[in-house]
Computed example of a mutant assay.
Amino acid sequence: MDLIVSTDVLAAFCERAAKFDFVTVDTEFLRETTYWPKLCLVQVATDDEAVLIDPLVPGFDLSPFYDLLANAAVTKVFHAARQDIEIFVKATGQVPENIYDTQVAASVCGFGDSVSYDNLVRAITNVELDKSSRFTDWSARPLSEKQRLYAVADVTHLRDIYRELAKQVTATRRGDWVEDEMAILRSVDTYVTQPDQAWERLKMKISRPRDLAALKLLAAWREQRAQDSDQPRSRVLKDDVLSELATQRPLTADAFERLRAVPRGFGRSSAAAEIMALLKDVEAMGKAELPVMPERYRGPSPKGAVGDLVRVLLKSVAEQHGVAARIIATSDEIDALVLDDQAEVPALKGWRRKLFGDKALAIKHGRIGLVATRKGIVEFAIKDHEDTAAAE
């Protein structure tokens, strides 16, 4: 396989690639010590050619490749596309046009949730891949022959996988399922975390408005600092430190030293000074400025009998349609829809709602029931559900 190290050669390849209906794409990158992934290698294949592109060559302009990604006439096929696309969004500000993720397609074709590339290659092409180079240092040069063979295999077998899955999706009429998932991957917001929204990804039990106000500001501060310094969030502050700072809100260096989660001496750092300034702002907030806490739910527990019934329904629906249950709904999504009929979860949107979500709500409100038969779980309508509801 060719290793492209100049813009002229890359431009010539991309001109040839633009004549095909699709190209397969993959990347190798490092991210252990950075916020942003460091692109180390790009692999691309057409029907009759496969190349490796070395982005670490000084002065190498990748614009011809980015133009290919922006060409809507060519389908860009990835497997588990999210991290690859994040790299390209960071470089260009745009999501590649006309993308297709074979991991998504495989999930709706019965290969299970988040199936790995090597398992998919084995299942579809009957080829056993050597994955021993997966965790090598892709920033080191020169690349070994073993690394090159590993890298190019990630796009050559992908051609056969794409063709086969596209056939299966068409045969099962699940194109709309795939499209729903692609809509998420096509949104720039999927790949860019805005600092003021960073708190939403934290799973912490916060019960007081002022604590929540502090958490929002602290999470935004950490996200911005991680992005600006290009280091992982956890190297700025770990999640448990954020939680303790939000609830204890230390305003002096000595107060920092009394916290369990905060590293010794941190209270006298410049970062601590910025945090104390934020926390002072929180303390100065009037009640009207504080965020409104979600209303406490007083209905059935999602971990109780209602949740159990919905989970049985989910397993039944998954078996009927030959897909993994987690593709239709996660455990957290079931909890959410038991708590709220209007929950903002995938299980209550698109094809998932048609397949499962509406039935889950019907069970929750006593409109349908489940019965076990030799053929499996069968749903049945409860004709007197209105009387049942009136008696509650």
Rank of each mutant, 00 (worst) to 15 (best):
N98C: 10
G299E: 10
A391C: 13
Y35D: 00
S331H: 01
A91V: 04
D21K: 14
K280Q: 15
R298K: 14
Q168F: 05
I363W: 00
A72C: 04
S269D: 04
P209H: 07
A214Y: 13
S144I: 12
T156I: 15
A318Y: 00
G265S: 00
A272F: 12
W221H: 09
D137R: 15
P195R: 06
R174F: 11
R31V: 08
V188P: 08
S207R: 13
L259H: 13
L41Q: 02
D340A: 11
F60S: 08
L314F: 02
A171W: 05
K315D: 09
V317Y: 00
D160T: 09
K383D: 11
I363M: 14
K280R: 15
L314G: 01
E49D: 07
A271G: 06
A253Q: 13
G366P: 00
R260W: 08
R298T: 15
T92M: 07
A318N: 03
K131S: 06
P37G: 07
D21C: 10
L337P: 05
V152I: 14
H365L: 05
Y100A: 10
A140H: 14
E200R: 14
V155Y: 07
I4N: 06
V127W: 01
R16T: 15
L309P: 07
V241W: 05
A214C: 01
E386W: 11
L242G: 09
S132A: 14
K315M: 13
V127H: 12
G357E: 08
M204A: 12
I87G: 00
P37Y: 08
Y150L: 08
R122Q: 11
K167A: 05
D8I: 11
R233K: 11
P64Q: 13
S301F: 00
A261N: 03
R235S: 13
H321F: 10
R268Q: 11
E181K: 12
F380V: 06
E86G: 13
A12Y: 09
D154T: 06
T75P: 07
C14V: 04
H79W: 01
